[in-house]
Computed example of a mutant assay.
Amino acid sequence: METRARLARALTNPVLFLRGCNRQFHRRLGLRPHNPDGIAVFEADWDALVVLDACRYDVFERRSDLPGRLERRRSRGSTTVEFLRANVAGRDLTDTVYVTANPQLSQHRESIRPDFHEVVDVWREDGWDDDHGTVLPETVTTYAKRAAEEHPNKRLVVHYMQPHYPFVGSGTTFDEGHLDGAGDGENVWNRLLTGRLDVDREEIWRLYAENLDRALPHVESLVESLDGRTVVTADHGNMVGERSFPIPFREWGHPRGVYTDELVEVPWLVHESGPRRTVTHGAPDSQDNEADDADGSGEADESVVAERLRDLGYAE
């Protein structure tokens, strides 16, 4: 049903049809479930992996002064879900605690079937900022430091939401209503793509870069608090009006299954400090910080996930 709906939308909007054609090229007509040139992040050598959602390599290189050795890597996906499926699904990750501001793992839990020791969903009620419609980076840092103390013998993955939309504290008016559902139901990137939002490209660039700036001091605080080898990276990048490939229309956001440089080139900053962690596997936490409704059906939780994803611009 979802595939039919996407096809119907594409047929009524030429640029969405062109995006679909590019996706078919990059995925080789569906033969590639993800970017085959991407790094398998859990096979890399690190004690803590800090993930900046939708952070391009070139923007990170210009804006970040985090301590460490910066390298360039290619991601396995152009969306968070692709990144998770390509790196998490089918792996024994009971040596790892995943602290995340992004609800996508919860939304796609049945298909990804994560096997982490523990998942800390910061985006649930106590970590969510209603005023901004996201999880603020300082909140993620607080949860991550706590997890590092509570699990000294586990690898740690910390997934920040920024620089992913929404643009925190930007004061923009073009996306008014995205928090209360008063808008047209489309995220900012799709409105730019289809020409229903006319905002100068340089303004979008500024907002995107400043959203990264908003997170970096809190990422630095976390990195400097951790012993061992910490890597700062991203799950994928973001396009800001560059020409896509092979059909060269202007692309916005981070469409699934499209592996242009802007979408899959990500930072890989390695920071070394103090002794390495002695990492052990352990039985997964059975609760996984899952919050169900009173009768145990999970319907209330699904509603929260859908609301959070909409606020983060995932609703299409």
Rank of each mutant, 00 (worst) to 15 (best):
D130W: 06
D95N: 13
E2D: 13
D285W: 01
D184R: 01
G169E: 04
R9N: 10
E118L: 12
E242C: 06
T79F: 01
W128C: 05
D95M: 11
G38Y: 08
S111E: 15
S170T: 09
A144P: 04
E110F: 01
V119R: 02
D180I: 04
H159P: 05
L31M: 12
P248W: 12
G296D: 10
T141M: 02
L7E: 13
P103V: 11
G20C: 09
V270E: 09
V240T: 13
T79M: 03
G313K: 11
S286G: 11
A48P: 02
T142W: 09
N13W: 10
H271L: 02
R76I: 03
D295A: 13
E272C: 02
V15M: 05
R27A: 10
P275S: 13
S75P: 08
E82M: 02
P275Q: 10
R23K: 15
D198C: 00
T3I: 09
E316C: 04
P114K: 02
V266A: 05
P284I: 09
A40F: 01
W123G: 03
G177L: 06
V119N: 00
R256M: 05
D92R: 08
V168T: 12
T194P: 04
T173N: 05
A8Y: 12
P103T: 09
P33T: 02
L309K: 13
D184W: 07
A182F: 01
E2Q: 12
D131I: 00
H108D: 09
V199R: 11
V88R: 02
N190P: 00
L156E: 07
V264N: 08
R229I: 14
T278F: 00
E82F: 03
E290M: 04
D115L: 13
T230R: 06
W128K: 01
V51H: 02
E82K: 00
K154Q: 15
G185V: 11
L156F: 06
H218L: 07
